[in-house]
Design a protein around this nucleic acid. Structure first.
Lengths: 346, 346
DNA sequence: CACCTTTTAGAAACCGATTTCATCTTTTTG
DNA sequence: CAAAAAGATGAAATCGGTTTCTAAAAGGTG
């Protein structure tokens, strides 16, 4: 404790020890130029001997590249974001990138602060999930900031937002939502409520629209009063379900904006002795552990995290390497049917 | 797209524009030396004008400090780890640190690879959760590596492991485990099974020992055959519970090594029409969302994530600043009683 | 064997900050 | 009012890599 070596081994030390110039050591390190086998062997030996680790700060300064990506999520505790990051990191590491992860807590000022830190740290690219990206009602300056930053360093956002013109990878759940409604119909369901996030959150807005259309398409009733705003938490699900249950007529299925809300709805249902799936069907979106932990297990729209995250990473790397072609890539989902909507034995 | 400016604004540009030397600009940036108000104002204006962001790579190279922390977890999808990181990051940011997050997938070679990347990136400190830190049966070279790295850059690990002599912050659940068993007894429970992780995982080993002692203390039966190995997943919980149910006599309470396993146990129980808490009591550990999503909700040992993560961060920063005093700090937990063990109305 | 090409490797400049050292001014003090 | 102390600032070295430029050595060709 308290007596770590102050001096690191440098390329100069290795050069001296191997009796060559620093340039030659560098050539061995980068592999960017030919070095005779003889000297290469000598150098490698010394690198081994000294357990030399090239200083990435110096390298980064020199080549103007940090092999670091900034990754902003609203809240890494939310399994949706942690899973995307998990898969993203796998793919990024294969391409030699490490990621700085930061939680914006959906706070725009904090997001700005984090983006600035990332710029100072000279990240090679930035992934921005949630926060202002996911909102269509925040001050225009916040959208501008992202476009401005994208002019300096590649940015990829993960939500479709017409206000922000930067490369985007987004979840396309339309087909799944139709499939889900169709499935509910097959379970003798005739009316559907929606426990939704706020209207100004893009993902809520889009899903709400698609749910409405799907219900119309399959002829299921969906009243406006059954569409309840809320947040994305278990608590929010309980509150929303409480509100829904105060309607004169109650729908016989409830689609939730994510799995947490669905879990909250189930909480309410259990507390009030309502039978699922007997009295009411409940569905979530995301495909998180919660679905399997709940009882009955929750029917959900499963995100293909591996594929989604890979697309994000690939788009960012392409953008870094200036080989980016598409700027808006969808990622598909699929329905997983579980106990919360399984009424009819097949 | 494809035409980002190649040249960044540097301290030299600012110096030229403000008609001062780069040294003076630097003095303004760092605040390490007096600069006349007049020049300071001029410089600030130019910094504003150019939207100048100092290059952290250059600064890091110069002062030999990156203000970056490496954070290794086995799996950020696991809510225990993501919550610790979430709280850690809050605290780290206040101290101007950003964190590189990486998933080791509990793979030692990958862990080594990540540690090496961190060393190359000249992180100021490393937090190591899980993986080899949590295992007491892996090759000695893996423990040595951590001690070796701790000689180069401060490391904090989050699991008590006698094989590794580096600063440690760990969960001290002993009191909570006694409280939990006492609570079970109060619910007319007389025998306890344990769905545990493998014996070579420290956290399993310690908890198992403490559960045994607590049961002995309170006079609850705990047979060896009721202690079932497994992993830390829902699937693992189902498997373990299946195995437990094959015993001739079955305990009337089951304590699980974490909430996920408890959720798995509940899964089994539901599938087999066993009543919780009527026929059997089930408990978890961690205090994750899962507890509230499950039905009945799971009684658990709640980790105080904020306090735990703060201790980790503080210890690391102290270690970086050479002001580290303690090298082994416990963090308390407490029991939260929910439906899965509430038999008796109070 | 002389001439040209290719290969290999070192010297030195560069990336963009910080910091030491020296210089010049200004202020304090005896 | 001169000498000493304090304050502000610039020049230049430094951190540790990469890369360009150049020169020497090796190899190929007529």
């Amino acid at each position: 404790m308290g007596n770590r070596p102050k001096k690191n081994v440098t390329i100069y030390d290795i050069a001296k020890a191997a009796n060559v110039s620093p340039a030659t050591v560098s050539r061995v390190l980068t592999g960017n130029a030919k070095v005779s086998e003889e000297k290469k062997k000598l150098i490698m030996e010394q690198i081994e001997m000294y357990d030399f680790k090239p200083n990435a700060l110096a390298r980064g300064l020199s080549v103007n590249k940090s092999f670091t990506i900034g990754f902003i999520v609203p809240d890494i505790k939310n399994q949706y974001f942690s899973t995307v990051y998990y898969e993203f990191e796998k793919y990024a590491l294969k391409n030699n990138y490490t990621a700085l992860v930061a939680n914006s807590q959906s706070n725009y000022e904090r997001e700005s602060q984090l983006l600035n830190m990332f710029l100072e740290k000279r990240v090679d690219g930035i992934v921005l999930m949630g926060g202002r990206v996911d909102t269509n009602s925040c001050d225009k300056k916040y959208y501008d900031e992202i476009e401005q930053i994208n002019k300096i360093v590649p940015v990829v956002v993960t939500s479709k937002n017409e206000n922000i013109k930067v490369p985007t990878v987004y979840l396309d759940e339309e087909q799944s939502i139709y499939d889900l409604i169709s499935h509910l119909k097959s379970q003798n369901c005739s009316s559907v409520g929606l426990l939704c996030g706020y209207d100004n959150i893009n993902v809520s807005f889009i899903r709400r629209k698609q749910f409405k259309e799907a219900c119309k398409f399959y002829g299921l009733e969906m009243r406006e009063e059954w569409i309840i705003d809320g947040d994305f938490s278990i608590e929010g699900g309980i509150r929303a379900m409480t509100k829904l249950s105060q309607c004169l007529k109650v729908p016989d299925a409830v689609c939730c904006i994510n799995d947490m809300v669905a879990a909250g709805a189930l909480n309410y249902v259990h507390a009030n002795n309502i039978d699922v799936p007997g009295d009411i069907l409940i569905t979530g979106i995301d495909g998180s552990y919660i679905c399997e932990a709940a009882y009955p297990q929750i029917t959900t729209i499963q995100v293909d995290y591996e594929s989604f995250a890979r697309k994000v990473c690939q788009m960012l790397i392409d953008s870094i390497n200036q080989t980016c072609i598409n700027t808006e890539v969808p990622s598909k989902t699929n329905v997983i049917v579980r106990g919360s909507t399984r009424r009819i034995l097949k």
